[in-house]
Design a protein around this nucleic acid. Sequence first.
DNA 1: TTGAAAGCGATACCAC
DNA 2: GTGGTATCGCTTTCAA
Lengths: 341, 341
Amino acid sequence: MSVTIKEIAVRAGVSRGTVDRVLHDRPGVKTEVADRIREIADKMGFTPNRAGRILAARKQPISVGCLLPDIGNPFFKDVIAGFNHAQQELADFGVSVHIEHIEGFSAETHIHAIQQLAKSGYSGLCLTTMDSPEVQFAVQSVIQQGVPVVSVNTDIPDTGRICYVGPDYFNDGVTSAGLLWRMIKDPLRILVVTGSYHIRGHNERIRGFISGMKKHGMDFVIVDTLESLDSNDFAYNRTINSLRKYHDINCIFIAAAGVEGVCRAVKNVVPDFMHILAFDSVPETIQYVSDGTIDFTICQEPEQQGYMAISKLFNYLISGNSQKPDDFITGTIIKIAENIG
Amino acid sequence: MSVTIKEIAVRAGVSRGTVDRVLHDRPGVKTEVADRIREIADKMGFTPNRAGRILAARKQPISVGCLLPDIGNPFFKDVIAGFNHAQQELADFGVSVHIEHIEGFSAETHIHAIQQLAKSGYSGLCLTTMDSPEVQFAVQSVIQQGVPVVSVNTDIPDTGRICYVGPDYFNDGVTSAGLLWRMIKDPLRILVVTGSYHIRGHNERIRGFISGMKKHGMDFVIVDTLESLDSNDFAYNRTINSLRKYHDINCIFIAAAGVEGVCRAVKNVVPDFMHILAFDSVPETIQYVSDGTIDFTICQEPEQQGYMAISKLFNYLISGNSQKPDDFITGTIIKIAENIG
DNA sequence: TTGAAAGCGATACCAC
DNA sequence: GTGGTATCGCTTTCAA
């Protein structure tokens, strides 16, 4: 069994209250005494017991606020499932989770939502937002007000966030290229469908993809590029146009949402042979992978992201905000029909 | 906040001790009183608080005994990492983990080790063993003595184990076939290298593989089959022989350990073109996948297995052995050079 | 058959 | 500046 505060108190000839004060850098202890206690604690190898702490912490329950731009985007269902899973598991430890849902990627909306969350008195925040300078600044100021932040799914660098939980988008792209290379030997005429030119993760995937293709010395051309703006109808119309315009397209790279729209367009215009690769696994994607319309999809453990974000934040809060945890980079998960079930 | 024992006690007009006795089915409470308390607890929706329980449980620390047939088999390194991870995380909760290492798959050795573990007074066991009838019987009798058991990596059905944590071997095989089908169009002349004909998981992978190949209507023949017995040198020699005997082999399916031996043999005899597929990712496999010798490997989250096994057992013990948890089937993880790092 | 009380480890608050 | 003490929820032991 490990060292307790009580033991330190006895050893130092003071009360537990005093030891506790010192260990939390609270004022009201003579410097010499404090130093001596710290020394003893170090020497004895003190690490606070989580169970004790959690129990005591019930007097000030922990509440976590989450921000998700998930309205209209089914991808985040699994992230939410992860949030809920964590909440369930930590409910006994006095943790409650609240999710703020917003739509789209307007900086204004995001900043407003973040500031609202900051005002609501949460113990910490899990944010999925964009890394534009204004948003970055808003996050920074929230953190400076003393609210710890974990960035989820997409990072907000240089803000003082305690850690990032999410995928390596570039490697997602590289991996998709690697798999394509192993599967197809013909020259490729590619249509790239992205979600938005303004979202870093989507761009990273495309960069990674092209980088991977080049590294393998593949014979390919990006024939056209278009935005789905996370809308299947948009994606449908634009894909139709593109396919009508460029008859030699034989491969579609779907970097983000809009999968259903793209696949519908393909089935209407080119009923036969077309290689399609996608990312993530919303229900429609699973369907299209299962029936062979999509060759494969590269996933990123969204549920794990939700779970780990809360978990990291909780551990940080419960261990006295001592040191920032490592980032958690989720796996690059290849899914084909056989293992997507 | 949720309901506590104290509240139930007040509501029922009895003491906390009495409520506790009822909730743990301990004797010494009048039946009518017990019934009434149970009813009240149900109505109020009582769920015990884990933090409180853990704290109180420190008086009888939890110790977990693990059995791994890992001597000479590097695969289990990651499972051990998972055990250690769990132990670290649960150390504050009074949990300690002890691992018993044995070599190979002799029923006698396994039974002996299991009986030793049972005698050593552990609160619960995590066992990776074989499902032969004798072993099964030994496990069964240990469980009947009141020691809960989680089966890890390979299941021991019909023994009363609380749950299984590990992969779906059959689906591993199916998935490897699916990937091969997407990658290779030529007729396949296949050499199957298994670990042992007596290990269910290996057989399942082969069955799944063949089933998947047939489902895709692939043109293939299993030319030869051999056992590596988890030894690289065995695997090397036998593979050499097989390759010399059957010159048309163009694909090797390695169902288990022995990867290094097989690859060495291939490089000696057929320096050029050969498709190799493997399972799991020990360091040598990672190396061979990275350099392109092996086309892909199908993995099974071994670290997760170790972690979840301890975690499931702990939760079971701490929540009063109330109900058996669900099995935890780890993912079928496809790794190619790009995402194996 | 039941109640009362002492912990488990950490924290917060009131006295001195 | 410090010590003492009640508390978080649960378990266990000793009395009654």
